[in-house]
Amino acid sequence: MRSMLQGRFQAVLGAESQPEFRAEIERFTHSLDFQTFSAMTVVDHALGKPEFIVLDNCPTGFAEAMHNPQLGLQDPVMQHCKRYSVPIVWDQQTYVGGGNPDLWDAQASFGYRTGICLALHLPEGRHFLLGVDRDQPLPEDPAYVTRMVADLQLFAVHALDTALRVQLPPEQQLERPHLTPRELEVLRWTMDGKTAWEVGAILGITERTAVLHLSNAGQKLGCNNKHQTVLKALRLGLIR
């Protein structure tokens, strides 16, 4: 658990503003050996058009095209992300196969030649898209590329709730479950790798009571095990 939450994955959870959030995404992007990124939070409204909130480091000359909603109607990567949560690894052939090679030619001149993109679709019309791009081909080693995709997925899961927290006004944010102080204490020590017996000894409660608090927290957060419970509590900002 601790190794999973260290470094680049955990740091994004602590971002308290859009500039901090942007800096953490850019730092992660460079750590994967990509140059540019785009992070988009989308809110579907019952009445009216969807709301798009974008953070990126794209070249100034490409920004207007990058932020044009009509681009999504032509871009095979965006069309994939609208329909699926499975990441897509894209290059020139993706656009050729999608019938839009001219779009790839246009963006390639700005350094967008290949990349990885994914979308996370939430209840109540919330969506989070994250893509990283580079001007060089991806490594030929399939295992290395698979690891890059997995890293991006894990980072996106951590970044998701930070995006909703720092980019949406309070009235648009989803309600967070209420955990008792004791449940939060148990989660914090569990995050540090303590067993239920050790948590009980630290807090002066029985092992069974520690397990009960952890189980109650998991039920409130809709999780099936302690690892999912800790991760979701971190994502929601309930623990640090």
Rank of each mutant, 00 (worst) to 15 (best):
Q92A: 07
Q93A: 10
T94D: 01
Y95N: 00
V96H: 06
V96Q: 08
G97Q: 10
G97H: 10
G98Q: 01
G98E: 01
G98I: 00
G98T: 01
G99M: 06
G99S: 06
P101I: 01
P101C: 03
D102V: 11
L103S: 00
L103Q: 01
W104F: 09
W104V: 01
D105N: 12
D105F: 11
A106P: 03
Q107W: 04
Q107R: 09
S109R: 14
S109T: 12
F110G: 04
F110M: 06
G111R: 00
G111M: 02
T114G: 00
T114P: 00
T114E: 00
T114C: 02
G115Y: 00
G115T: 01
G115C: 04
G115D: 02
I116R: 05
I116H: 08
I116P: 07
C117M: 06
C117S: 11
L118D: 05
L118Y: 07
A119P: 04
A119W: 03
H121R: 07
P123F: 11
P123M: 08
E124R: 13
E124C: 12
E124H: 14
E124F: 14
R126I: 13
R126G: 11
R126F: 13
R126K: 15
R126H: 15
F128P: 02
F128S: 03
F128A: 06
L129F: 15
L129Q: 13
L130P: 02
V132G: 04
D133A: 14
Q136F: 14
Q136V: 15
Q136L: 14
L138G: 11
L138F: 12
D141H: 06
D141V: 08
P142E: 05
A143Y: 08
A143G: 07
V145C: 04
T146P: 01
R147T: 11
D151F: 03
D151K: 09
L152Q: 06
Q153R: 12
F155Q: 05
F155L: 09
F155D: 05
A156D: 07
V157Q: 15
V157K: 15
H158I: 06
H158F: 15
T162I: 02
A163P: 00
L164I: 09
L164Y: 10
R165D: 02
Q167I: 04
P169V: 06
P169F: 07
P170Q: 14
P170R: 13
P170W: 13
E171H: 13
Q172V: 07
Q172G: 03
Q173N: 13
L174A: 11
E175S: 10
R176M: 10
R176N: 10
R176F: 09
P177E: 01
L179Q: 10
T180D: 12
P181L: 10
R182S: 15
E183T: 08
L184F: 10
L184V: 14
E185Y: 06
E185L: 10
V186K: 02
V186H: 03
L187K: 08
L187P: 09
R188F: 06
R188L: 07
M191L: 15
D192P: 05
D192N: 12
D192W: 12
G193F: 04
G193Y: 03
T195M: 09
T195I: 08
T195V: 08
A196F: 05
W197G: 09
E198I: 07
E198T: 09
E198G: 09
E198Y: 07
V199A: 08
G200F: 02
G200N: 01
G200I: 03
I202F: 13
I202V: 15
I202A: 14
I202Y: 13
L203K: 13
L203T: 12
L203V: 12
